Simulated assay, not measured.
Amino acid sequence: MAATQVLRSEWTKIRSVSSTVWTLSLAAVVTIALGFLISLLSKNEFDNMSTRDKLSFDPTFISFAGMTLGQLAIIVFGVLVVGNEYSTGMIRTSLAAVPQRGTFLFSKVAVATVLALAVGMITSFVTFFLGQAALGSHKATIGDPGVLRAVLGGGLYFTLIAMFSMGIATMLRSPMLSLGILMPFFFLISNILGAVSATKKVGQYLPDQAGSRILRVVTPLDDDTPYGPWGGLGIMVLWVVVALIGGYALLKKRDA
């Protein structure tokens, strides 16, 4: 089967499964709504902040506060794109139709990535502008130094989370197992490792901790992270590459 036919087939699969469409939509809605709410609360609390907190106040980063919860829906999207075929048994039919497993996997990842990137960029810009509107006089503008980079980075972060989830789901071949590992890892384990002083140096190299650095414009006063915004995103890209290569290696080696 030609590569263009495989791409069209994968687009049809993603579009026809309502759960993947809904989870991607939910990721956008949660990120935007929670970001707006936290921005509004931050505006009301600004006058009560300490001088130290005011100096570290990052209006751009605050508008992306909803990304922490929104990324859980992005993870579900990435897992379902791959995992649905394993849970339904359709993977056997798919691999029989496309025996070139590299073409099969990377066509699936390519289509889902383009979709996630489009939704991610729209979500990121809407999140920023609504968040800044809520912040009122404490807002940043898109022309301020570092702000456009952070907003574009929000869309890239959104996309990379989906790609990483696809790689892990390909390795594990089970939606439930993949979600059972990824959800607590991103929602709990990573945050704990990044917050505890004994493990902070390890935690800052985890995909979400490193990647979310791209969302920051103002560096916190006590920050000692050894990389910058693009360096953090680069670390996240390496995690994604390893996950996808691992998924491809296992897909090529194992039976369907």
Score class of each variant (00 low, 15 high):
residue 3 A to E: 11
residue 4 T to S: 15
residue 4 T to V: 14
residue 5 Q to P: 04
residue 5 Q to M: 14
residue 6 V to N: 02
residue 8 R to T: 11
residue 8 R to A: 13
residue 10 E to W: 04
residue 10 E to D: 06
residue 11 W to D: 05
residue 12 T to Y: 13
residue 14 I to E: 02
residue 15 R to N: 08
residue 18 S to H: 12
residue 21 V to F: 08
residue 22 W to I: 15
residue 23 T to G: 06
residue 24 L to S: 03
residue 26 L to S: 07
residue 28 A to I: 10
residue 29 V to F: 09
residue 30 V to D: 08
residue 31 T to G: 03
residue 33 A to K: 06
residue 36 F to V: 10
residue 39 S to V: 09
residue 40 L to I: 09
residue 40 L to H: 12
residue 44 N to H: 01
residue 45 E to P: 05
residue 47 D to R: 12
residue 48 N to W: 08
residue 56 S to Y: 10
residue 57 F to W: 13
residue 59 P to G: 09
residue 59 P to V: 15
residue 60 T to M: 11
residue 61 F to L: 15
residue 61 F to H: 15
residue 66 G to R: 07
residue 67 M to L: 15
residue 68 T to M: 13
residue 71 Q to A: 03
residue 71 Q to S: 11
residue 85 E to N: 09
residue 86 Y to L: 12
residue 88 T to K: 13
residue 91 I to M: 11
residue 96 A to L: 15
residue 96 A to Y: 10
residue 98 V to M: 12
residue 100 Q to S: 14
residue 100 Q to E: 15
residue 107 S to H: 05
residue 110 A to M: 10
residue 115 L to I: 13
residue 121 M to I: 12
residue 125 F to P: 01
residue 131 G to N: 05
residue 135 L to R: 03
residue 136 G to M: 04
residue 137 S to Y: 08
residue 139 K to P: 00
residue 141 T to R: 13
residue 141 T to H: 12
residue 142 I to Q: 03
residue 147 V to K: 02
residue 153 G to L: 01
residue 154 G to I: 06
residue 158 F to P: 00
residue 160 L to E: 02
residue 164 F to A: 05
residue 166 M to A: 03
residue 170 T to Y: 02
residue 174 S to E: 05
residue 180 G to H: 05
residue 180 G to A: 10
residue 181 I to N: 04
residue 187 F to E: 09
residue 187 F to T: 08
residue 188 L to P: 05
residue 191 N to P: 05
residue 191 N to G: 13
residue 191 N to T: 14
residue 199 T to F: 08
residue 200 K to G: 11
residue 201 K to F: 09
residue 204 Q to L: 15
residue 205 Y to C: 10
residue 214 I to N: 01
residue 215 L to K: 02
residue 221 L to G: 00
residue 221 L to N: 00
residue 226 P to F: 11
residue 227 Y to P: 02
residue 227 Y to N: 04
residue 227 Y to F: 13
residue 228 G to N: 01
residue 230 W to L: 10
residue 231 G to W: 09
residue 235 I to M: 00
residue 239 W to T: 03
residue 241 V to R: 10
residue 245 I to K: 04
residue 246 G to S: 08
residue 253 K to A: 12
residue 254 R to W: 11
